[in-house]
Design a protein around this nucleic acid. Structure first.
Length: 232
DNA sequence: CCAGACGTTGTT
DNA sequence: GTCTGG
DNA sequence: CCAGACGTTGTT
DNA sequence: GTCTGG
């Protein structure tokens, strides 16, 4: 499914610029929050990723740590999605990912983390009838058993920067193995998503999903017309 | 009753 | 759309 | 350089 | 997308 990362409730009427931070939904309140409730009760989804970053430290000089499976296989975040109609009548599908307390390993880096679902739990999460507290407690505890963590160069810490360089390990910039690994996972994800290529970051993902079409509002905001271009 | 909120922690 | 708070 | 504008005169 | 203004 094509969707933008930053959930827009179906009832939202103000300009998108006024939409609060809804790209993440706290697992603790996802069932009760007016922003997320509708989606939680009807529209669950999986967000496929090859990995993600957690940041550590103070603004300006943050360490960026990458979480991923040893093989860079896809893993899935617990997500919810919505459809919203813009004033122009355009139907926009958007989503949020659930976040929760960090696993023991992740807690050394950050105080929150995305809910990573175990493959055995995918179907259970996807059934929106599953709303029982105990079930949710179990589902919304991140599975991190097989995850590897390494520090990146921090190149991706700036939203101006895109591409495979973002996941290069610290102290190993320029090593062939790193970029080859990056190329591999990008190709794998693009193939999985059925699009021609995959560029890192939320903005690029939405653009990729849209096959280059500009997404509305602030969901694909770029800086001063400087846009990442999709390779042929 | 009704205006107003409704959210999270994303990098510079 | 629906709940909270004044 | 880059953030921010980019428009006109309506209705209750 | 492109121009203006700070």
């Amino acid at each position: 499914m094509n969707a933008c990362w930053w959930l827009i409730p179906s009832w939202w009427k103000q300009p998108l610029k006024k939409l609060p931070t809804t790209f993440n939904a706290r697992a603790e309140t996802i069932a009760s929050s007016r922003f997320f409730k509708d989606a939680f009760e009807r529209r669950r989804c999986l967000m496929p990723v090859t990995g993600w970053y957690e940041y550590q430290g103070k603004a300006g000089h943050k360490r960026s740590l990458c979480f991923h499976l040893p093989s860079w296989e896809l893993l899935a975040f617990a997500g919810i999605y919505e459809t919203w109609q813009s004033p122009d009548g355009e139907i926009v599908t958007s989503f949020a990912i659930a976040t929760t307390q960090p696993s023991q390993a992740a807690s050394k880096i950050h105080d929150r983390m995305p809910v990573v679902l175990h493959p055995d739990d995918y179907s259970e999460w996807l059934d929106p009838e599953n709303r029982e507290a105990a079930t949710l407690e179990r589902l919304l505890t991140p599975w991190d058993g097989a995850l590897e963590i390494y520090e990146t160069t921090g190149f991706g810490n700036s939203p101006h920067n895109e591409g495979p360089e973002c996941i290069e390990p610290a102290g190993a910039a320029g090593q062939v193995g790193c970029s080859r690994r990056a190329v591999t996972w990008r190709a794998a994800l693009a193939s999985c998503l059925g699009c021609k290529c995959f560029l890192a970051s939320a903005r690029s993902v939405s653009r990729c999903f849209e096959h280059g079409k500009q997404a509305p509002g602030n969901l694909s905001r770029t800086t001063s017309g400087r846009r990442a271009t999709l390779p042929a």
